[in-house]
Write a protein that binds this DNA or RNA. Structure first.
Length: 379
DNA sequence: AATGCGGGGGG
DNA sequence: CCCCCAGCATT
């Protein structure tokens, strides 16, 4: 699969020099690069997992204001913590980070440990993040292999291993470990990330301006478009829902807290009921036609069996679609046109006024539903 | 090794 | 509509 690494020591040194020189001239000016404080490096690297730089910047700045030290992160209120991450996705990242912060306070005197074994022992810190923290904050000669680095190295050495496979990371680990700077590992790793983000891009890489093109096997053979090799992922499975917007006599809306495990754990949404594709199609048809169908709709819907008597009229406000990694949600957003009484909600539910919504943590699909609700109220 | 876990951008 | 971007925990 992979060819032998046959670079001389001299070639490795020139390669590192060329890459580092480029980085020192061209590196992006990013808030977390103002210092190499381990906590700032840690927060930024966790946020940057599966998330683009432009998205992370405002979240990072606010997070450092809200939780300036590891100790304050360890003691942070859970709702505020989740609020700091709202909209960023992969919410277990921030839960794991607080878990690790508590470990650091209890076991490591409140300071990020400076050896790679202890760094990697912390919850939420795997090989990539551990290498990034170790190299940037503590100058440890550890690789930090993310998707950018695998793309760069797959082209550099024409490595055909499928980067979607877990075992492939070990192949790249060997190559990066053998070619990386031992004196400036942090800058070397960040240079690779910047190169992957700005020059050695997934499509149409800017090879002419690449500082290491003369070392690149794929560039020499005009094969950059063949790398990296990556297995295609499965399509998102469609799921269908009806979200019910209920307003009580006081004008508050019913929100529901999702379970503590699984997708969007502990976050708030309008109550949602999963339906089959056939029910979904039937309902959207019914809503689209006439009022005479509303009774049928109410019967089919049966969102709240207890209150079925009160479901007299419903209105389709809009449709929300949202794509996750493996699922695609199709949501009919439905409002009751008649108020219901202000008592009577389940343990995981609350009646909330619109101007209080900002105090609740909403995932993106819910934010889209709120937008639809607000728009309908302006009409 | 396979799966679950969000959300963004561009063509 | 399609495509691309992906670490870590869990099992």
């Amino acid at each position: 699969m992979s060819e032998e690494l046959a670079w001389t020591q001299e070639k490795k040194a020139r390669f590192q020099e060329d890459l580092l020189t480029w980085y020192h001239l061209e590196k992006r000016d990013l808030p977390w690069r103002e210092s190499t404080d381990p906590y700032r490096v840690w927060v930024s690297e966790i946020m940057l997992q599966q998330t683009q730089v432009v998205t992370v910047i405002p979240y990072f700045n606010r997070f450092m204001e809200w939780f300036p030290t590891i100790e304050e992160l360890a003691n942070a209120n859970e709702d505020k913590l989740l609020k700091a991450w709202e909209g960023l996705g992969y919410y277990s990242r921030v839960r794991n980070m607080q878990h690790a912060a508590k470990e650091i306070v209890e076991t490591f005197d409140g300071k990020m440990p400076s050896n790679i074994v202890d760094i990697l022992s912390l919850k939420g810190i795997g090989p990539y993040t551990g290498g990034a923290i170790g190299s940037i904050a503590f100058s440890l000669p550890e690789p930090a292999i993310d998707g950018n680095v695998m793309r760069v190295y797959s082209r550099l050495f024409c490595l055909s291993d499928d980067i979607a496979l877990p075992k492939t990371r070990k192949v790249f680990d060997k190559y990066v470990r053998e070619t990386m700077s031992q004196t400036e590992p942090g800058d070397f790793n960040q240079a690779l990330m910047d190169l992957g983000a700005t020059i050695c891009t997934p499509t149409k890489p800017s090879c002419q301006t690449c500082p290491i093109k003369n070392y690149c096997e794929a560039y020499k053979t005009d094969m950059t478009s063949s790398y990296p090799v990556k297995k295609k992922k499965e399509k998102a499975k469609p799921l269908y829902y009806v979200a019910n917007i209920l307003k009580n006599d006081n004008g508050a809306f019913l929100l529901e807290k999702r379970p503590s495990d699984g997708l969007l754990a502990d976050m708030w949404t309008f109550p949602m009921k999963e339906v089959t594709k056939e029910e979904y199609d039937g309902l959207s048809q019914a809503y689209d036609t006439v009022e005479t169908s509303t009774k049928m709709v109410a019967e089919q819907l049966s969102l709240y069996d207890d209150e079925k008597e009160s479901i007299k009229d419903k209105q389709l406000l809009g449709i929300v679609t949202h794509i996750f990694s493996h699922r695609k949600w199709h949501i009919l957003v439905v409002a009751d046109t008649l108020s219901v009484s202000a008592d009577n909600c389940l343990n995981n539910q609350e009646w909330v006024y619109l101007d209080e919504f900002s105090q609740y943590v909403f995932p993106k699909p819910q934010q889209k539903m709120v937008d639809i609700l607000k728009k309908s109220m302006n009409n």
